[in-house]
Amino acid sequence: MASLATQLGPLKLQNPIMTASGTFGYGEEIANFMDISHLGAVVCKTVTRAPRAGNAPPRTCETAAGMLNAIGLQNVGVERFITEKLPYLRQFAVPLIVNIAGETIEDFGLLAQALSQQAGVAALELNISCPNVAHGLDFATDPVLTEQVVAHARAATHLPIIAKLSPNVTDITLIARAAEAGGADAVSLVNTFVGMAVNIHTRRPRLSNISGGLSGPAIKPLALRAVYRCAQVLGIPLIGIGGIMNAQDAIEFFIAGASAVQVGTATFVQPGAALEVIQGLESYMDKYAIASIKELVGSIITT
């Protein structure tokens, strides 16, 4: 049996498949459809300091082989997350990665500090790349700010830190290196691509926020190239995200250089999609006699 054991800096996972933030809630709903303890890790929906109601509807719109969303980081806020959501998530024997977002650098530090004191939090993913809130993208489009926010969170916590990067930049490798320089243990990429859709009958945007983040199979080739390029220049592990619908998609990301992947939009279509990716990955590794997932990571042949 192939070994899927994965290490992301100090974070040890039984396999490299995790959920993507914002597609898994806080676990309660998806637990009806899959055994969460089989995942490599759980990444829960973004938590902010204060509760956020989110954007006005309509918040989503399907597009060709993809979808736009502008949820607007609707969440209960960190205090209620700790008292109401964390106890539930803690019960699964799977590392919990809490995704956090702030409006300021200080917010990230305070959130990191508050969550570091809680049992059952294995790592933090810094959402410095949400396209659907004011200033959401400011950090991840600027290498100086990226390094500062990561360094600030780094100083506030002993937990492993993953910086989630935006593809809405000229050169994502510059941002990835800035995150590494700031002390990130890993980077996850990519968040959604900013896009829009228009209703030609009403001439109104299909999202109340006008623009939203594009996800799904439509973005997979774009995300894959971003991972490939960053893998060439980084000394820390990468987590690939973007349109992974099945094991074949995930395997492409491993070969391109991702040490782990997140399954996002696929969960909306099949609530158990992440587990199907794990099963498909095991079959592939058995078929090609790959003993460890580590042999697959970055194994792309370009000569």
């Binding site: 597609t23 709903e29 509807p57 989503t60 609530p271």
Partner: peptide, 17 residues
Amino acid sequence: EENMPCGVGVCNGCVVP
């Protein structure tokens, strides 16, 4: 009726006020 991407409560896309 709203656009309902997931149907199981995780995407928060189908909200009404």
